[in-house]
Amino acid sequence: MQLVVARIGRAHGIKGEVTVEVRTDEPELRLGPGAVLATEPAATGPLTIESGRVHSGRLLLRFEGVRDRSGAEALRNTLLIAEVDPEELPEDPDEYYDHQLMDLDVVTADGAEVGRITEISHLPSQDLFIVERPDGSEVMIPFVEEIVTEIDLDEQRAVIDPPPGLIDDRAETASARDAAEEAAAPEGGA
Protein backbone atom coordinates (compact mmCIF):
# COMPACT_ATOMS: atom_id res chain seq x y z
CA MET A 1 0.00 0.00 0.00
CA GLN A 2 1.24 3.46 -0.83
CA LEU A 3 0.96 6.37 1.61
CA VAL A 4 1.80 10.03 1.01
CA VAL A 5 4.43 10.89 3.62
CA ALA A 6 5.47 14.42 2.57
CA ARG A 7 5.13 17.20 0.02
CA ILE A 8 8.23 18.96 -1.25
CA GLY A 9 8.25 22.71 -0.68
CA ARG A 10 10.67 25.37 -1.84
CA ALA A 11 14.39 25.02 -2.38
CA HIS A 12 16.63 25.89 0.58
CA GLY A 13 20.03 27.34 -0.18
CA ILE A 14 22.08 26.57 -3.28
CA LYS A 15 23.18 22.96 -2.68
CA GLY A 16 19.99 21.07 -3.55
CA GLU A 17 18.16 20.96 -0.23
CA VAL A 18 14.37 21.31 -0.11
CA THR A 19 11.88 22.01 2.64
CA VAL A 20 9.20 19.36 3.12
CA GLU A 21 5.71 19.42 4.57
CA VAL A 22 5.67 16.22 6.62
CA ARG A 23 2.48 14.15 6.35
CA THR A 24 3.44 11.21 8.53
CA ASP A 25 3.65 10.70 12.28
CA GLU A 26 6.83 8.70 11.74
CA PRO A 27 9.19 10.93 9.73
CA GLU A 28 12.28 9.26 11.21
CA LEU A 29 11.07 5.93 9.79
CA ARG A 30 9.71 7.12 6.43
CA LEU A 31 12.04 10.03 5.59
CA GLY A 32 15.44 8.81 6.78
CA PRO A 33 18.63 8.66 4.70
CA GLY A 34 18.51 5.83 2.19
CA ALA A 35 14.71 5.78 1.92
CA VAL A 36 13.54 5.34 -1.67
CA LEU A 37 10.23 7.08 -2.30
CA ALA A 38 7.85 7.02 -5.22
CA THR A 39 6.56 10.41 -6.37
CA GLU A 40 3.49 12.11 -7.72
CA PRO A 41 3.97 13.05 -10.50
CA ALA A 42 5.57 9.65 -11.11
CA ALA A 43 7.99 11.02 -13.74
CA THR A 44 9.84 12.96 -11.01
CA GLY A 45 10.90 9.84 -9.11
CA PRO A 46 11.72 7.61 -7.57
CA LEU A 47 13.80 9.75 -5.21
CA THR A 48 16.37 8.46 -2.72
CA ILE A 49 16.96 10.54 0.40
CA GLU A 50 20.65 11.33 0.82
CA SER A 51 20.42 13.39 4.00
CA GLY A 52 18.00 15.25 6.21
CA ARG A 53 18.15 17.83 8.97
CA VAL A 54 15.88 20.15 10.90
CA HIS A 55 16.43 23.88 10.41
CA SER A 56 14.25 26.49 12.16
CA GLY A 57 11.59 23.89 12.85
CA ARG A 58 11.37 22.66 9.23
CA LEU A 59 12.64 19.37 7.87
CA LEU A 60 15.15 19.82 5.05
CA LEU A 61 15.98 16.92 2.73
CA ARG A 62 18.60 16.38 0.06
CA PHE A 63 18.06 13.73 -2.60
CA GLU A 64 20.67 11.74 -4.47
CA GLY A 65 21.47 13.40 -7.80
CA VAL A 66 20.05 16.82 -6.85
CA ARG A 67 23.02 19.13 -6.36
CA ASP A 68 21.83 22.69 -7.00
CA ARG A 69 18.99 25.10 -6.36
CA SER A 70 17.40 24.73 -9.80
CA GLY A 71 17.27 20.93 -9.42
CA ALA A 72 15.71 21.34 -5.98
CA GLU A 73 13.22 23.94 -7.24
CA ALA A 74 12.13 21.55 -10.02
CA LEU A 75 10.87 19.16 -7.31
CA ARG A 76 8.56 21.72 -5.72
CA ASN A 77 5.03 20.43 -4.91
CA THR A 78 6.02 16.81 -5.60
CA LEU A 79 4.35 14.32 -3.27
CA LEU A 80 6.63 11.71 -1.66
CA ILE A 81 5.04 8.28 -1.38
CA ALA A 82 6.23 5.38 0.78
CA GLU A 83 5.34 1.73 0.30
CA VAL A 84 3.82 0.44 3.56
CA ASP A 85 2.71 -3.07 4.48
CA PRO A 86 -1.09 -2.85 4.96
CA GLU A 87 -0.80 -5.07 8.06
CA GLU A 88 1.75 -2.73 9.68
CA LEU A 89 0.47 -0.80 12.69
CA PRO A 90 1.85 2.36 14.32
CA GLU A 91 3.91 1.81 17.47
CA ASP A 92 1.49 3.83 19.63
CA PRO A 93 -1.80 1.90 20.11
CA ASP A 94 -3.74 5.20 20.06
CA GLU A 95 -2.47 6.10 16.57
CA TYR A 96 -3.84 4.92 13.25
CA TYR A 97 -2.86 5.08 9.62
CA ASP A 98 -5.38 6.78 7.33
CA HIS A 99 -6.07 3.53 5.46
CA GLN A 100 -7.19 1.90 8.73
CA LEU A 101 -9.77 4.64 9.35
CA MET A 102 -11.15 5.01 5.83
CA ASP A 103 -14.65 3.57 5.39
CA LEU A 104 -15.22 3.02 9.12
CA ASP A 105 -18.86 3.38 10.16
CA VAL A 106 -19.36 6.32 12.52
CA VAL A 107 -21.93 5.88 15.29
CA THR A 108 -22.82 7.80 18.44
CA ALA A 109 -22.33 6.27 21.88
CA ASP A 110 -26.02 5.29 21.93
CA GLY A 111 -25.66 3.48 18.59
CA ALA A 112 -27.23 6.05 16.25
CA GLU A 113 -25.73 5.88 12.75
CA VAL A 114 -23.89 9.05 11.68
CA GLY A 115 -22.28 7.88 8.44
CA ARG A 116 -19.03 6.57 6.97
CA ILE A 117 -15.52 8.10 6.94
CA THR A 118 -14.69 9.01 3.34
CA GLU A 119 -11.70 11.29 3.89
CA ILE A 120 -9.27 12.38 6.58
CA SER A 121 -8.14 15.98 6.51
CA HIS A 122 -4.84 16.72 8.26
CA LEU A 123 -4.86 20.26 9.60
CA PRO A 124 -2.14 21.94 11.69
CA SER A 125 -4.24 21.92 14.87
CA GLN A 126 -6.00 18.55 14.52
CA ASP A 127 -7.19 15.95 12.06
CA LEU A 128 -10.78 15.87 10.80
CA PHE A 129 -12.89 12.93 9.69
CA ILE A 130 -14.98 13.82 6.66
CA VAL A 131 -18.08 11.66 7.17
CA GLU A 132 -20.66 10.99 4.48
CA ARG A 133 -24.13 10.85 6.01
CA PRO A 134 -26.79 8.41 4.76
CA ASP A 135 -28.54 11.29 2.94
CA GLY A 136 -25.33 12.08 1.00
CA SER A 137 -24.43 15.21 2.97
CA GLU A 138 -21.08 15.51 4.75
CA VAL A 139 -20.18 16.36 8.32
CA MET A 140 -16.70 17.08 9.72
CA ILE A 141 -15.78 15.37 12.98
CA PRO A 142 -12.63 16.54 14.82
CA PHE A 143 -10.46 13.49 15.54
CA VAL A 144 -9.87 14.36 19.19
CA GLU A 145 -10.23 12.12 22.24
CA GLU A 146 -13.10 14.15 23.71
CA ILE A 147 -15.26 13.52 20.62
CA VAL A 148 -13.98 10.26 19.08
CA THR A 149 -14.22 8.01 22.12
CA GLU A 150 -13.43 4.66 20.50
CA ILE A 151 -11.92 3.23 17.33
CA ASP A 152 -12.84 -0.44 16.90
CA LEU A 153 -11.00 -1.83 13.88
CA ASP A 154 -12.42 -5.33 14.39
CA GLU A 155 -15.99 -4.00 14.22
CA GLN A 156 -15.00 -1.39 11.58
CA ARG A 157 -16.51 1.52 13.48
CA ALA A 158 -15.68 4.80 15.20
CA VAL A 159 -17.78 5.77 18.22
CA ILE A 160 -18.29 9.48 18.83
CA ASP A 161 -19.73 11.61 21.61
CA PRO A 162 -20.48 14.82 19.68
CA PRO A 163 -21.16 18.12 21.39
CA PRO A 164 -24.57 19.66 20.62
CA GLY A 165 -24.71 21.10 17.11
CA LEU A 166 -21.79 19.11 15.66
CA ILE A 167 -23.84 16.57 13.74
CA ASP A 168 -27.28 18.17 13.90
CA ASP A 169 -28.80 21.64 13.74
CA ARG A 170 -30.00 21.64 17.34
CA ALA A 171 -27.21 23.46 19.11
CA GLU A 172 -27.65 23.82 22.85
CA THR A 173 -27.74 27.56 23.56
CA ALA A 174 -29.23 27.81 27.02
CA SER A 175 -26.69 28.34 29.76
CA ALA A 176 -27.05 27.68 33.47
CA ARG A 177 -27.48 31.44 34.00
CA ASP A 178 -30.40 31.54 31.52
CA ALA A 179 -32.07 28.61 33.32
CA ALA A 180 -31.63 30.35 36.70
CA GLU A 181 -33.18 33.58 35.34
CA GLU A 182 -36.19 31.65 33.99
CA ALA A 183 -36.69 29.92 37.35
CA ALA A 184 -36.57 33.25 39.21
CA ALA A 185 -39.02 35.03 36.85
CA PRO A 186 -42.51 35.69 38.39
CA GLU A 187 -45.46 33.77 36.97
CA GLY A 188 -48.32 35.49 35.14
CA GLY A 189 -46.55 38.79 34.28
CA ALA A 190 -47.42 41.92 36.25
Results as ranks from 00 to 15, higher is better:
116 R>E: 13
164 P>K: 07
103 D>Q: 15
124 P>E: 05
69 R>Y: 07
65 G>D: 08
119 E>T: 07
178 D>Y: 07
92 D>F: 01
58 R>G: 01
11 A>P: 07
57 G>C: 04
141 I>S: 01
9 G>Y: 06
96 Y>A: 03
108 T>C: 10
96 Y>E: 08
132 E>S: 09
29 L>V: 14
180 A>D: 15
157 R>A: 00
30 R>F: 05
124 P>F: 04
170 R>E: 12
103 D>A: 07
156 Q>M: 13
65 G>C: 10
184 A>H: 10
141 I>N: 02
174 A>K: 14
118 T>D: 03
47 L>H: 06
170 R>C: 00
38 A>H: 11
19 T>F: 10
14 I>R: 15
77 N>H: 06
29 L>S: 13
84 V>C: 03
39 T>C: 02
174 A>H: 09
62 R>C: 03
15 K>N: 13
139 V>A: 01
186 P>W: 04
112 A>T: 14
10 R>T: 13
4 V>K: 12
24 T>R: 09
145 E>L: 03
43 A>S: 05
183 A>P: 08
34 G>C: 09
162 P>R: 10
3 L>G: 05
102 M>P: 02
68 D>H: 13
147 I>K: 06
76 R>I: 06
144 V>P: 04
5 V>P: 11
120 I>V: 15
160 I>H: 00
79 L>F: 12
11 A>F: 03
101 L>A: 03
70 S>W: 09
67 R>M: 09
135 D>R: 13
